[in-house]
């Protein structure tokens, strides 16, 4: 039986075949161009109310105006401050707890039944309580953001710690290391690459909650600006806010990725493996 010739375009779709870097960049760029083009065409369609669905150019103009004339930078910095402060607090609590729970099953048995169910309590449902306890200032916003991620952080860091190979711990034991030494010099550095990855992934959740935090009883921040814009049906400004949050999220994600490469070069060298023969 003769093999039918494959259409030329399909020949490029090989299962799990690596694509050259240049093509990768080009394709990634093309998807964004198509996205904006589609948006533009949709928004300029005569059936669409442009005030409710402005085209991309209008959104970018609004973004420019926000920074130039409405001191939007202060709002952005306020939001970034809330993210960093809340995430710092969450890490300061979750890191030691997660490490201890992942290292000592005794601690896990005590704390996990308490911490684990808290993940399923929706953080926004605590907002009314936090408003009553802490008022409408930064304390309330930061407390809410901490509540939103801390339970996940604790359990994920615990998982990362438990994933440290037992052989590494046993090797350290046979080399005469005590419990404290093993925790400090083996378990922590062995789990750290995955913990940094956990930080990166959970930071995305923090950005998601930021908008909720700043929509309720807030006077500043990106979310508050979006709520103000809604009152005047400035849809372009709302969309500009969404873009800024997306951009900032991506920026933080990239920064943590770069940090991962910087801190753990030994995990990013797989191509060079067996550099030396025998």
């Amino acid at each position: 039986m003769t093999q039918l010739a494959e259409p030329a375009i399909l020949a490029n779709f090989e299962i799990k075949k690596q694509v050259p870097k240049r093509v990768q960049v080009l394709l990634g760029f093309a998807s964004w161009v198509l996205f904006f083009l589609g948006w533009h065409l949709l928004a300029t369609n005569s059936q669409i109310n442009q005030q409710l669905f402005p085209p991309p150019l209008k959104v970018f103009t609004a973004l420019w105006m926000l920074f130039a004339e409405e001191n939007f930078l202060a709002d952005v910095l306020q939001s970034v401050f809330r993210i960093l402060a809340s995430y710092g607090i969450a890490i300061a609590i979750a890191l030691p707890l997660g490490l201890l729970m992942g290292t000592f099953p005794m601690v896990e048995a005590f704390l996990n039944p308490l911490v684990s169910p808290f993940r399923y309590l929706p953080a926004p449902s605590f907002i009314p309580l936090l408003l009553m306890w802490l008022g409408t200032g930064d304390e309330q916003k930061i407390a809410f953001l901490v509540l939103g991620v801390i339970w996940f952080l604790i359990t994920l860091i615990m998982d990362n710690t438990q994933a440290v190979p037992m052989e590494l711990v046993e090797t350290a034991k046979t080399l005469g290391a005590g419990k404290g030494s093993i925790l400090r010099t083996i378990i922590f550095p062995a789990a750290l690459p995955n913990i940094v990855d956990t930080f990166r992934q959970m930071l995305a959740v923090s950005w998601t909650y930021l908008v909720i935090a700043e929509i309720v009883a807030a006077t500043n921040g990106i979310g508050a600006m979006m709520m103000r814009a809604k009152r005047f049906v400035h849809v372009d400004e709302i969309m500009a806010g969404i873009l800024v949050i997306g951009f900032l999220g991506l920026l933080f994600d990239t920064a943590l990725r770069l940090l991962h490469w910087q801190l753990f070069p030994y995990l990013h060298r797989s191509q060079q493996k067996n550099l030396y023969a025998y």
Binding site: P165, L168, E170, T171, G176, P189, A190, Y266
Partner: peptide, 18 residues
Amino acid sequence: GPGRDRGMVFQSYTSFPW
């Protein structure tokens, strides 16, 4: 218990990668 008077080499690679 384990102690430094008995050194151990495992089958799996146990070099600390960091």
